[in-house]
Amino acid sequence: MTSDDRGSSSISPGEEPRSSISGEPVDDPVSGSTKTRTKPKRKQLPLWQETILLLAVALVLAVVIKTFFVQAFYIPSESMEPGLILNDRILIQKVSYWGGGEPERGDVVVFKDPGGWLPPEDSAGPTNPVAQVMAKIGLYPTGGHLVKRVIGVAGDTIECCDDQGRLIVNGEPIDESAFVRRGGATCDGPMPTNGACDEDWKTGPIPAGHIFVMGDNRSRSADSSQKMCRPDETECVPGEEFVPADLVVGKVFVLLWPADRFRWNTRPDVFEDIPDPS
């Protein structure tokens, strides 16, 4: 055997030369042509496994989004008319209240029932198993929540009313005519009866970490004003009219459905002129 024989490779006819790098062009001394070794195909998961994996990722993302960013709810009553009506679908965002942020006057918020504000049927939530799963991941409204507008925050004093029937917050009357339904009453005060306003009520200062909320449909809303103790009540517990701010889930930012009523929800400018509590 010569030195040339020892330095050469033995290749059978039709055999592809080996290459140390996949995809590297090599010469075939038998045919005299140049060939490229094909990279081995990457093994793919079966379709059913890919489907399960994608569903798992989607569920995790949905739970994360519901927990930290956005959640769906519906309007359970007529208490927020005319702006939000029964069965409207809304989205709330939670970012505004990150890092110790709290609701501001004029925000429309969704909050958990502070206790006894809702009848049992409204607190139960969905009973259908599919709806229950969807509620867990934020794709279906859950029960036990209310939607109201923030009228006062910690330290505020609220009273009814000036000579135009407007609520007074920290001594400043607020014109809510653009979004409040008086229901035949002569003022924007709470729970009017037979068109007459309860002009003798006053509440506050609101305790730290709490808010005072009212529905826009003032004559048809179970809200903070309904929980206030009246002079002739003997079993009322003072303070139940205030909602702990940590029960607030988020702020309504869009009316999503029905499509012909779609709109962004923003804080009315009239609340910007309210002075801080003295």
Results as ranks from 00 to 15, higher is better:
residue 263 R to C: 03
residue 79 S to Y: 08
residue 166 R to P: 13
residue 108 V to I: 15
residue 84 L to E: 03
residue 28 D to R: 03
residue 11 I to A: 04
residue 71 Q to D: 15
residue 231 P to G: 02
residue 72 A to D: 03
residue 244 P to A: 06
residue 250 G to P: 01
residue 258 P to F: 09
residue 223 D to W: 01
residue 39 K to I: 07
residue 120 P to N: 08
residue 117 W to A: 10
residue 171 G to Q: 13
residue 29 P to W: 10
residue 270 V to Q: 07
residue 77 S to K: 09
residue 159 E to N: 08
residue 178 A to G: 11
residue 118 L to Q: 14
residue 136 K to S: 12
residue 264 W to Y: 10
residue 75 I to W: 00
residue 55 L to H: 02
residue 275 P to M: 08
residue 11 I to E: 12
residue 128 N to R: 06
residue 184 G to H: 12
residue 237 V to R: 14
residue 101 G to H: 13
residue 132 Q to S: 09
residue 54 L to G: 06
residue 119 P to A: 07
residue 6 R to H: 12
residue 33 S to Y: 06
residue 260 D to M: 07
residue 10 S to V: 15
residue 227 K to G: 06
residue 124 A to K: 13
residue 56 A to K: 06
residue 213 V to Y: 00
residue 163 D to F: 04
residue 154 A to Y: 03
residue 169 V to K: 02
residue 60 V to K: 04
residue 85 I to K: 13
residue 197 C to V: 11
residue 228 M to Y: 02
residue 91 L to Y: 12
residue 42 R to L: 14
residue 38 T to P: 05
residue 92 I to C: 00
residue 218 R to I: 07
residue 55 L to K: 02
residue 203 T to D: 05
residue 152 G to M: 09
residue 32 G to R: 11
residue 129 P to M: 03
residue 230 R to F: 05
residue 79 S to K: 14
residue 19 S to G: 12
residue 49 Q to A: 14
residue 33 S to L: 11
residue 142 T to C: 03
residue 31 S to T: 15
residue 255 L to G: 01
residue 4 D to H: 08
residue 235 E to V: 08
residue 57 V to Y: 11
residue 193 T to H: 10
residue 276 D to K: 15
residue 131 A to S: 15
residue 271 F to E: 00
residue 100 G to E: 12
residue 32 G to E: 11
residue 257 W to R: 02
residue 138 G to Y: 05
residue 91 L to V: 01
residue 19 S to K: 06
residue 250 G to C: 00
residue 201 W to Y: 04
residue 14 G to P: 01
residue 132 Q to T: 12
residue 214 M to H: 10
residue 102 E to V: 15
residue 72 A to M: 13
residue 67 T to R: 12
residue 179 F to W: 08
residue 241 E to H: 08
residue 16 E to D: 10
residue 72 A to S: 07
residue 167 L to D: 08
residue 18 R to P: 05
residue 200 D to M: 04
residue 103 P to Q: 03
residue 23 G to I: 07
residue 39 K to L: 09
residue 276 D to H: 10
residue 53 L to I: 14
residue 65 I to K: 04
residue 203 T to M: 10
residue 101 G to W: 13
residue 178 A to Q: 11
residue 104 E to H: 12
residue 165 G to K: 14
residue 236 C to N: 07
residue 4 D to R: 09
residue 243 V to R: 00
residue 124 A to D: 14
residue 40 P to Y: 02
residue 274 I to F: 04
residue 45 L to M: 13
residue 187 C to E: 05
residue 50 E to Q: 07
residue 26 V to W: 05
residue 237 V to T: 15
residue 249 V to W: 00
residue 119 P to Q: 12
residue 253 F to R: 03
residue 204 G to Y: 04
residue 92 I to T: 06
residue 151 I to Q: 09
residue 25 P to K: 11
residue 84 L to H: 07
residue 26 V to E: 07
residue 121 E to Y: 13
residue 250 G to L: 01
residue 59 L to I: 14
residue 1 M to L: 09
residue 252 V to N: 02
residue 191 M to G: 06
residue 134 M to R: 06
residue 256 L to D: 15
residue 89 R to D: 05
residue 265 N to Y: 01
residue 30 V to C: 14
residue 163 D to C: 05
residue 66 K to F: 00
residue 214 M to F: 08
residue 187 C to L: 12
residue 128 N to A: 13
residue 270 V to A: 02
residue 189 G to Y: 05
residue 198 D to K: 08
residue 30 V to E: 15
residue 150 V to E: 05
residue 194 N to G: 13
residue 86 L to I: 10
residue 163 D to Y: 04
residue 222 A to R: 14
residue 127 T to Y: 01
residue 44 Q to R: 12
